[in-house]
Simulated assay, not measured.
Amino acid sequence: MNEDDLTARARIRDAALLEFGEHGVKGATIRGIAQRAGVSPGLVQHHFGTKDGLREACDRYTIDAIRVTKRDAIEKGVNEPGLLASVLNVTLPIQRYVARALVDGSPAAAALFDDTVKASTELLGQGLTGMKRPTTSDLEAYSAAVTAMTFGLVVLHEHLGRVLGEDPLTVAGYPRLALAVLDVFADDLLSPELVDRSRAAIRQFAPETRS
């Protein structure tokens, strides 16, 4: 969390992100959030009213934080010194919350997914430094698939952590999985011939499907 943002309201929000991420909205309690934040339950209710109000605040914070992080990565470039550390400092603490929200379902989770697909479609269409422009004729579906795979890694972090020995939503566990994902994107796993045969088979099954 942002160490400069240590107001009582921010501490409560940060504690709620962790409690909701670990226990879900139904399992988390005002008392548990208050205890984690080091405040009284009454102060939680004073700032946020109800647990639903606190969840809405967490949703807004999460979406805003991810949007700002993406914008910084685009404007500064992923090779900018210190950017990765800054991104991890902001995003890793909220990833468990995102994972739980995507599974439990919420308007904010839906908005985050849709927003990410839209942003990816625009960015991939423009072309970014160091990235090839996709050859697909269905960029929206391409972006949706990439977004789903990316969020899938977050949702399945516990299984990945069990297999790899470290939770990828921690500073210790993140690098190994991130490097593996880079390898996946860098490798040409399928031969052109296999791709062509697979596309032909899919088009026979669904003639309206674009390439």
Rank of each mutant, 00 (worst) to 15 (best):
G42H: 01
G42S: 01
L43W: 04
V44A: 12
V44Y: 11
V44R: 12
H46T: 06
H47C: 04
F48K: 00
F48D: 00
F48C: 02
F48S: 03
G49M: 12
G49K: 12
G49P: 12
T50Y: 08
T50D: 05
K51D: 03
D52Q: 14
D52M: 12
R55D: 00
R55C: 05
R55G: 00
A57F: 03
A57K: 02
C58H: 13
D59M: 10
D59Q: 11
R60K: 14
Y61H: 15
Y61L: 15
T62L: 13
T62V: 13
I63A: 12
I63R: 13
D64A: 13
D64N: 09
A65V: 13
A65P: 07
I66A: 09
I66Q: 12
I66T: 11
I66V: 15
R67H: 08
V68R: 13
V68F: 09
T69W: 00
K70G: 07
R71D: 15
D72Q: 05
A73I: 08
A73M: 14
I74T: 14
E75M: 02
E75S: 04
K76I: 05
K76W: 13
K76L: 15
K76V: 07
K76A: 11
G77H: 03
G77D: 00
V78L: 06
V78R: 04
V78A: 02
E80S: 06
E80M: 05
P81F: 01
P81G: 09
G82P: 10
G82R: 04
G82K: 10
G82Y: 12
G82D: 05
L83Y: 03
L83H: 03
L84W: 10
A85K: 04
S86K: 10
S86N: 06
V87I: 07
V87L: 05
V87R: 04
V87W: 07
L88I: 09
N89I: 02
V90Y: 01
T91P: 00
L92K: 14
L92F: 09
L92R: 12
P93N: 09
P93L: 09
P93F: 06
P93D: 10
I94R: 05
I94Q: 07
I94K: 06
Q95C: 14
R96F: 06
Y97T: 00
A99G: 14
A101C: 07
A101H: 03
D104R: 10
D104M: 11
G105F: 01
G105I: 03
S106V: 11
P107Y: 10
A108D: 03
A108G: 11
A108H: 00
A110C: 01
A110L: 10
A110M: 07
F113Y: 08
D115I: 09
T116L: 10
V117W: 06
V117Y: 01
V117N: 02
K118Q: 05
K118H: 01
K118G: 01
